[in-house]
Structures are given as structure tokens and as C-alpha cells.
Nucleic acid binder design. Structure first.
Lengths: 100, 100
DNA sequence: CTTTATAACTTTGATAAACAAAGTACTTTC
DNA sequence: GAAAGTACTTTGTTTATCAAAGTTATAAAG
């Protein structure tokens, strides 16, 4: 009997980072403030989780101005997308094992 | 767009506890040493994760003797089984969202 | 009967992660 | 010019994780 969580990614172990990835994979891009509201986080907490994902090169930043206001958008890299897919696959295998 | 990780259980955020639950739900019961070998953990580490699950009342202990050797078996409680199911459901929803 | 071994922890201590709150720098709206 | 918004960074506290060593109890070996 295997448990097969070898594809499990430490970067996605945290609930918030799982949520961030989930939103970003589904939405192509999302800005800082919308993400903050959606997940109900403080600035610092969100920023640090985003930074952790950036460090893994799973996340990319795009800075621009909307009118004269700064706007920071985040998007998942190809690497991030692949890693997240692998991670979800590992979880799916776990779920399948439970079901049979 | 909902992210719906409200069913997400903090007790299962850790990879090892996720593995323990996975094994225990599938196997009805498992003893300390077999679990230790299967997951390749030190005594202390395994014991503390099991204790965390016991504290949540997700896990139960059965002490007995096999021959004259002590044997400690762990089993999932009904509460634990239900909580784990909810947790996997939340993960499954996440996966489904990604797929569509 | 003493050393060695096994089981199942508990304790210790060190490192890392998570988080809120406050601070920063710059801009803009009132 | 005061208040508020954006996007952080810094600080400090609390919690989590883990290996390693210590503990207690029994048992087998020499």
C-alpha cells in the first residue's frame, strides 16, 4: 500500500497559498487589493505569502498604473501552473484511494 | 467566484497528518511501529502528530500485548472520519474548480 | 544478574513559519 | 494641508515542526 504524496509541494501546504494559487490559476491575474479582500487578509500576511510563491518562481508581478493609482497584479508562471497541477494530482490520488 | 475552503481543516494542513489519516482511514487500525516505518519518521515526530490528532478527537489509541510485547494501535474515530471526509471534499471542490 | 534491546513515548532545544500591527513612501482626494 | 489609499517592509509575538536525547517498562541474551 502506497501513500504517494511524493508529488506533494511544500509551497502549497499552507491554506492561504493554496487559495491564492487556486484564484490565480482560475483567473489569469488578480490585483493585490482584490486578493486581500477576497481572502480577508492583512496587507502583511498577503504580501508575505505572495513573496513565498514568488521565491519559488510560481508567481509573477506586474506593476502598472490605473489612472494615476499604482496597481499590482499577480499572475502564475508556467512553472507555478505545472507545480500546482502536480500537487492537485497528488491530492486527487489521495482522494481516489479513500473512495475505493 | 467562491473559493470555498471553509471546510478546510487545520488539523490536516500538515503533510504527515494527512498521510496518517489516509492510512488510518483505509486500514481501520495501524500500530505505532508500522506507521513509523511506513512514513519514515522518528518516534518523537510521529508521536507528536498522533497526539495532535488525538487532541482533536480524530484518533483513538488501543493498547494491548502481543505475546508479552506491548502493542499500540491507532484508529480513527467517527469524528475523525467525518472531518477527513469534509476536508477531502473541500480539496476535491478545489480540484474541480481548476478543471472546468 | 547485568547488559542489551524493544516499545512507546516525553522532554528539550533549536529552527522555521505564521500572523497582526505598526511603520514607510508615495500619491491623491477632500 | 489633513486624511486616505496602495503596496509593501519591519517588528515582535505566538505557534509549528522536528531531531535528538532522555524515560519507563518489559524482555531476551549472555
Amino acid at each position: 500500500m502506497k501513500i504517494s504524496l511524493d508529488q506533494f509541494d511544500k509551497a502549497f501546504e499552507n491554506r492561504i497559498r493554496l487559495q491564492i494559487m487556486s484564484v490565480l490559476v482560475a483567473n489569469e491575474s488578480y490585483d493585490f487589493n482584490s486578493l486581500k479582500e477576497l481572502l480577508d487578509l492583512t496587507d502583511g500576511n498577503l504580501a508575505s505569502h505572495l513573496k513565498a510563491l514568488e521565491k519559488e518562481e510560481y508567481m509573477q508581478v506586474q506593476k502598472s498604473f490605473i489612472g494615476r493609482k499604482p496597481n499590482t497584479r499577480y499572475l502564475v508562471t508556467e512553472k507555478g501552473r505545472a507545480a500546482f497541477k502536480r500537487h492537485l494530482q497528488a491530492l486527487e490520488n489521495l482522494i481516489k484511494q479513500q473512495k475505493k
